[in-house]
Design a protein around this nucleic acid. Structure first.
Lengths: 190, 190
DNA sequence: CGATTCTTTGAAAACAGTCAATCTGTGTGG
DNA sequence: CCACACAGATTGACTGTTTTCAAAGAATCG
């Protein structure tokens, strides 16, 4: 059931089977249909979501009324709005399934208690947050050092399978330009 | 000596005075002159740096040979290259003082040992990493949803004192445009 | 005071956005 | 099975923002 997650955790820290039992009883599993939300703008984010399979997107509605995708959540990634979670403030973001997906839910209320019982789990989250933070900084690097076209070509050669899985307009939004521009890039040369 | 840091930690977790003693003995304090480096491209990053006072910048040299600033480290912020630190790989980044500064050094080798003695400290880092990650995502938001000019005006009204402290070309680099463009924005209207 | 480093200014060009029309594919209901 | 609706993708002309390059002007530091 939670095997994907346990395998992922064990890449970073070790867990006893007792630990696994305790963790399992704290978690919740949820299947999502395409376009189903786990967080909508205005709500206070109450959990951290582990994408066991499928794909989610985190996005905001910008001042032009268009979606701006800040992050995709794919297999074995955690996704949540830490700003809303940490400060218990209404979120400005949405988290939505982009295809039918399975997520493992770690409710915020239970998290601290769990960390006290299993310090290794807090360590695991510290480590993946370091990676996530580093990845987010790397993203800024690509935005500033590559043109839109370079960014698209680099991204689609890095994640050729992923590019097939999501609509192009979402890719354009994630990469920071318009769907029309993406279409023109693709039209140039195959 | 380390009071700034202890105060900062105590905003997130509680520490006994025994804890403080243990932590203090693991730390190192270092004063930096303007333009002094704590990390240079090619080195393996060996520590996490807490800016007690002053200001540091983290930057890379891009393909045009120009600096691209990814982050500033100001009072009470930790700064390091987690990518180099976590994987013990040569860094692609530089971390350098922008003015005379004092940093508190937490060497990587000692960190894990320290976290085992004081789990609250690992919790502290998890919490500030959540904030840092969230801040980095917010930055992507601003890059994509504001023009260069809007970004500058927003940034300088948010951090009016900071804008005075660093050269304009660094500001331009951080905000993702050229020094010439920044100069033109400023020329438009004071 | 001299030398470097930083900032300003202007003209031309590149990059990407906007808007509007058209095309394509896919699924649904009759 | 067809017709239709609708979401997504493409195309072209036009506009705007930001870059590039070059040169000159200010500021700062030893």
């Amino acid at each position: 059931m939670y095997q994907n997650l346990f395998d992922h955790i064990k890449k970073y820290v070790s867990l006893t089977s007792t630990d696994e039992g305790i963790i399992a009883s704290a978690l919740d599993c949820r299947t999502l249909k395409n376009k189903e939300f786990v967080l909508e703008e205005g709500q206070i984010c109450s959990a951290n979501y582990f994408v066991a399979n499928g794909c989610l997107r985190m996005f905001e509605i910008n001042s032009n009324g268009a979606d701006q995708i800040l992050q995709f959540g794919i297999d074995n990634w955690w996704i949540t709005d830490y700003n809303s979670l940490d400060f218990q403030r209404p979120s400005k973001l949405n988290i939505q399934a982009v295809q039918s997906s399975t997520v493992i839910v770690l409710p915020n209320k239970i998290q601290d208690e769990l960390f006290q019982k299993i310090p290794a789990l807090e360590r695991y989250f510290r480590l993946i947050l370091q990676r996530a933070y580093s990845a987010s900084q790397l993203r800024v690097h690509y935005i500033f050092n590559q043109s839109g076209e370079e960014r698209y070509r680099h991204f689609s050669s890095s994640f050729p399978d992923f590019v097939q899985r999501v609509p192009q307009y979402m890719l354009a939004s994630y990469l920071g330009f318009t769907p029309e521009f993406l279409s023109k890039i693709r039209g140039k040369k195959e």
